[in-house]
């Protein structure tokens, strides 16, 4: 099952991920990304992959577990 990871220290709060996939990514008061969920389904993957790739500092990855 695909699992979402985020490099919180690298995140710059550009928020492209939140705009592209608001069901899994959000942002906190300090402007750092929040994972609303960690596990996603295979069906969701392509869409979330595109959201992850819209991060300007490549802070987001999807791993297989």
């Amino acid at each position: 099952m695909p699992v979402l990871k985020a490099d919180f220290a690298a995140c710059q709060g550009y928020a492209n991920c939140v705009d592209a996939a608001p069901t899994v990514y959000d942002i906190d008061d300090d402007g750092v990304v929040v994972l609303l969920r960690e596990r996603i389904s295979e069906e969701e993957r392509p869409h979330i992959e595109e959201a992850a790739r819209s991060c300007p500092v490549s802070a987001l990855t999807i791993e297989d577990e």
């Binding site: 709060g13 928020a15 705009d19 906190d28 008061d29 402007g31």
Partner: peptide, 12 residues
């Protein structure tokens, strides 16, 4: 400026 949280809401 220095406010990503507001940016997210406003972008929406």
């Amino acid at each position: 400026v220095n406010w990503p949280k507001a940016l997210v809401q406003c972008r929406r």
